[in-house]
Design a protein around this nucleic acid. Structure first.
Length: 200
DNA sequence: GGGTTGATGTTC
DNA sequence: AACATCAACCCG
């Protein structure tokens, strides 16, 4: 299966967030199927970093679609996002959970956990499992600059997952935007949830 | 199980 | 001061 190209990230940020569910995030010998994402829109979304952070606006302006946007939160956790621009709505997509596939032993060591569903079932957890931190901010995940060991792959299971949508987790602004997407009945989704609906 | 709380540091 | 979190702890 081929890696996703830059064009995948040149579409509406909410559509891309939905479509990422079921793809495989490949990261330096480790990988997992993305089972949960959230979209944040650069315009008209008070929960997006662009609403409050000049550095986020500068990132959006200067980096190509498909770039990793990595930031530190709550004093302890790195969160991994992907830059979307050039479509109907630009924005950032938070990758919130993975169903682990490759490099499981390494991820178990980094997380100090054995059970598969505890490895990547949350945005902070998956960054620990994949050893993602601030030095990866700006990494191009598509195109010619993409590191050989990193990327998004359309997996065989991409079309097998039924995708649900929900409100976003852990925010205090625009709490009613239904821009969280998750794979139905997947045990690796992070636990909290609001009102889940089917997606077309 | 479910709710609560403390740990921790960057950004504005 | 707020924060796109997590795990340990309580209670039952």
């Amino acid at each position: 299966m081929p890696f996703l190209g830059t064009a995948f990230f040149q579409r509406d940020v909410v559509e891309v967030a939905r479509d990422l569910v079921g793809t495989e995030l490949v990261w330096h010998g480790c990988s997992g199927i993305i089972v949960e994402t959230e979209a944040y829109a650069a315009e008209g979304d008070p929960a997006c970093h662009t609403a409050t952070r000049p550095s986020a606006r500068e990132f959006m302006k200067s980096r190509p679609p498909g770039s990793a946007y990595v930031y530190f939160n709550y004093g302890m956790y790195w969160l991994f996002n992907l830059l979307v621009k050039g479509g109907e709505r630009d924005g950032l997509i938070l990758v919130r959970a993975l169903d682990p596939r490759r490099g499981i032993e390494v991820m178990q060591q980094r997380r100090q956990r054995e059970k598969l569903h505890e490895l990547c079932s949350g945005p902070g957890k998956l960054a620990v499992a994949l050893a993602i931190d601030g030095k990866h901010h700006g990494t191009p995940m598509t195109g010619r600059q993409r590191p050989a060991g990193c990327g998004l792959r359309a997996s065989a299971t991409t079309t097998e997952h039924e995708v649900l949508c929900d409100v976003r987790v852990g925010i205090s602004q625009a709490t009613d935007f239904p821009w969280r997407f998750l794979a139905k009945d997947n045990g690796h989704v992070s636990v909290r949830h609001g009102r889940v609906k089917k997606v077309a």
